[in-house]
Amino acid sequence: MSAAANKTRLVEEMKAQSGQDPSQCFQCAKCSAACPVTAAMDLLPHQVIRYLQMGMEEELLKSKTPWICASCFTCAARCPRDLDLARMMEGIRLSMLRCREGNKFGPADLTPEQLEKLPQQALVSGFRKYNK
């Protein structure tokens, strides 16, 4: 665990992407209590933020939770700290792709097999990124 460094690449990238600051969270966990898809998550939403606060980048990269997130924004609607966790999740997904894979491909470079394997959320992220 790299708890000392909050300023890991993933966290910084996520902050830049989402405009949300995980240090604002005081871990009331209302996001997790409200989330409709926690049953399929390996980390609860509030734990994802905790991992960001602790700079636990490697552990977070292994988690499926950001890819399970349905972007329903219930967490954002409930958060007493006015944090938009859905946006953070999106930021994490983008950052994960960038940290792990780099910016290697454009949509045209993907083969049909790759497209089949690619998670839906990554496609959404990709479209958002390339549509700018």
Binding site: Q27, K30, S32, C35, L43, L44, H46, Q47, T74
Partner: peptide, 27 residues
């Protein structure tokens, strides 16, 4: 229970409180 409640809804003669215990990480 260290955590918050996400929703409350009536079911039969009681109320279902859907919350989280953040210390155990359990819903």
């Amino acid at each position: 229970l260290r955590g918050q409640v996400g929703k409350i809804f009536p079911e039969e003669d009681h109320l279902v409180v859907h919350g989280v215990d953040s210390l155990s990480g359990k819903i």
